[in-house]
Write a protein that binds this DNA or RNA. Sequence first.
DNA 1: ACTCGGGCTAAGC
DNA 2: GCTTAGCCCGAGT
Length: 774
Amino acid sequence: MASKPNSETTSLLFTVSEERRAVLTGNVEVVTPNTTVVKKKKWTKEENEALEAGVEKHGFGKWSEIKKDPSYADILSERTNVDFKDKFRNVHDSEKLALQRASRKEVKKQKEIERRLAFATAVAEAAVNESLMDRRITVRGVVASTTHVIKEIGSVVLKEGEFTIKCVLNTADNLIRPQDAKDVTNFAEHSYLAFQGVVSLPSTRIKGSMKNISQKVVLQVSQIYGIGKTLPPAPVETDTSARSEAVIEKDMEVGEPSRVSDVPAPANQKRVQAFVSALAEAAVSIEDSDPNLFPVEKVDESMFGRKISVRGEVASTIHVHRRIGSVVLKEGEFSIRCVLNTADDLIGLQDAKDVTNLAEHSYLALEGVVSLPDTRVQGSMKDLSQQVVILVGKIYGIGKTLPPAPVETNTAARSEAFVEKPMEVGVPSRVSDVLELVNQGILRIQSCAELVLREFFSSRKFIGMRTQKLIAGSSSGAPFCKLNWEGYPTCLAHSPQFARQMAIRGGSERVFEIGPVFKEDSISKQLCEYTGVDVEMRIDRHYFEVVEFVESLFVDMFNKLHEKCKEDFQAIQNQHPYEKLKYFQFNAKVPFDVGLQLLENAGTKVIHPLRGLNPEEERKLGKIVLEEYETEFYILYDCPSAGSTFYTKQSPDVHHSSNSFDVFLRGKKILSGGEREIDPDALYSRAADLKISGTDLGDWDSVCTCTMPRHGGFGVDLNQVTTMLFSTNDTDKAGVDGKEAAVKGIEAAGVQSKDGKDTSRKARNKARVKDKGK
DNA sequence: ACTCGGGCTAAGC
DNA sequence: GCTTAGCCCGAGT
C-alpha cells in the first residue's frame, strides 16, 4: 500500500486533508469499535409518567432523589439518573435541540465547503484563498455574472470549474478606469476573461449575492485581459445549400457533408441527428404470444398470487430435499428463484428431481404462482429478485437442453491465480466464454460506457455523427492506408478529423463520433481497429474549455459506470481481483511543468523536458501522483510544443508549450488532445519546422483555406478506457479480436497503391528499418 | 451530583 | 437516506 501522506499536506498541486482525500477516493477506512452493541429501549408511557411525576415531586435536577423514591423505583429501575436527565431534556427542550442540530449541520457544511475550497484553490491559477491575501495575482475564467458599475463600483463573478471569485471593479479608488469597468460589466456571460488584481476582503459596498463559496475573498481588479477572439464572417453564403429539393430540382445527395457550404444546411444536420437517434432507439421490444410470460426483471411483489410464466437459463439448483427444492432462473442479469414444492403437491416429485438435475445453462420456461420466499428454501437469498419466488406448477423445456459442455465453464471463470494465464479481454467467441459472467460483464460495461457517453454528449449539446472510413478512390485527405478492392483503388481512412472539422465550420458547435478507428498498433506495428470516441468542439475563449470538458466527461463516465454496472464490476472483481480506480471528482488537472516538478522532487530527472515524458517517466509520474494524491486519473495540460502534433496550436502564454493536454489513467497516457491550429501561416511554418510536407499534411490544406473558428478536440480508445477500469497492467489486450480481423481483411484485399507498391504501414516500417540499417 | 454541550448510532420514518 | 432519540462522555459548576 502507498504510504499515507501527512494530513494537510501542502504541495504544488493540492491542499487536501486526509478526511477529504478519503471522501474523494472513496477510500474510507472502516474502524470497527471495540465495544458491545447497545440496544436502545424506547421509554414506555409508564416510565414517562413516573419521570414527570418525580420531577413534579422532587424538583428539576433531583434525579438521584427520584431514582431512590420507592414510588417510582420499580418502574424506573432500568434507567439511570443520567437517563432521566437526557429524557427530560429530549421531551422539554426538543426545539432547542433541533436548533442546535441545525446549526451543527450548518457548521459541518461550512467546514466541508472550506475543505473543498482549500482543495481546489491550490491548483495552478485557481489558487485564491486567504493565504493569498494582499497578493497581486491573475485569475481567469468564464464570466458568470456581473453587477454594473453603480456609484463607481461594480463587479464580475469569474467562474472556473465549479469555483467562482468575485472580482471588484473599483473606479472610485482609481484602481481601474471607469470606461474599462463599464465595458467589462457589459461583456456577455460565458466570455472568457483574465483579471489581474489584489486579493482582499469583500466590502459591503458590493451588492449582490454573497453566496458564492469564494466570497471570503475578492479580487480588486486592476488589469483586464480578454482571452480568445470571435469568429470571422463566413466565406460562403450558406443559404444556397440550405435550399429545398423543390427549388434546386436535384435529388438530395445523402452522404457525409464534405464541402464547407454543405455543412450548415439544416437538412444535413437533421440527417446526422436522425441517424444518431435511430441508433439510440434501435432497442426492439419483444412481444410474445403468451400473455402470462414475464421477463424476470419485471417480476415483483405487486404480482403476488398471480399465475405467470418466466423463462431463462438455469443458474443454480437446490436438489429436492425434504420434498422441497428450487431452481434459480437467470434472464440476462436478473434472476428469480423458482420453488419446487412437492410436499404440497404443487409439482410431481419426479419432475422436481429431474429439473434440479438439469445441466446449468439449460433453457427453461416455468409456470407458477408468484409468492413470497419461504424459510424452507435454503441457500443464498442475495439474488436480485429474492423479494419474490415462483411456486412452480408446470415445467417447459425450451429447445434442447444443453449437451454436456465441451469446456468446463468453471475453467473460464477461474481467476488468473488459478489458470496461470492472463485474462484475455476481447469479444467472447467460444460458448464457454459467453456463458462466463466476467465476459458478459465486460460486454455490458462497454455497452454502458457507450450509452453513458452518448447521454453526456447529448446533454452538452453535441451532435453525434459518423464519418466514412472506407472510401472509394485513390486518395482521401488523410489515408491511413491504400488498398485494392476487386481492382478498384480504395482508401482506409484514419479517424477522419476533417469531416468533424467541417461540421464545426458549418455551425455545429460541438460534434462527436463513436465508431471504429484504425491505427497502427504500437507494439505489433500492424493495423488495428478500436472503438474510438472522437470529439471536436468550438473554443470560445480558451482551450481550457476542452480540458475541462474531457475531465467532466471521464468523471461522469467513471461515476455512472461504477453505479450502473456494480454487479458486472463485482463479477470481474471476484475472478480477476483488481483495485478500484481511484479518481477525483474534480480538479485533476495539472500543468505540465508542475508534473516535471513533481518528478524532479521525487528524484527523477526528465530526459527531454521539452519533448514531453517518455512512457517510463509517465509511469513514474503516475506512481507519484497516486501515492501522494491517491488519484489514478489526471490531466497534464500546457504540454511541450515539441511533443505535440504539427496541427496543435502553440501556446501564446507559455514558452515552448502548446495548447494541448494528455489524459492519464493508471500511469498510462490514454488520450491526447488540444486546440487545432487554424492560422494557415502558423500551420505551414510549423509543418515546415517539423519537416512535414505534401500528402502528410492531409486535409489540413482544406481546413486552412476556409476560415475556421477556434476549435479543439481529442480522440480516445473507448475499449482501452473501460478495460483499464478493471485491470491494472497491460491494456493492449482490449480488442484483440478486432485487430486480428482487420489485419486479415486487409491482407485479403491486397495492400497495393496505384503504382503497385505496397504502401501499408507494415511495408513502410520495413523500409524504414532497412534505411536505418544502411 | 448535576449541568452543559455535544458525539455516536440504533431505530424509526 | 435522513431524522430522531437513546445512550454516552468530558469538562465545568
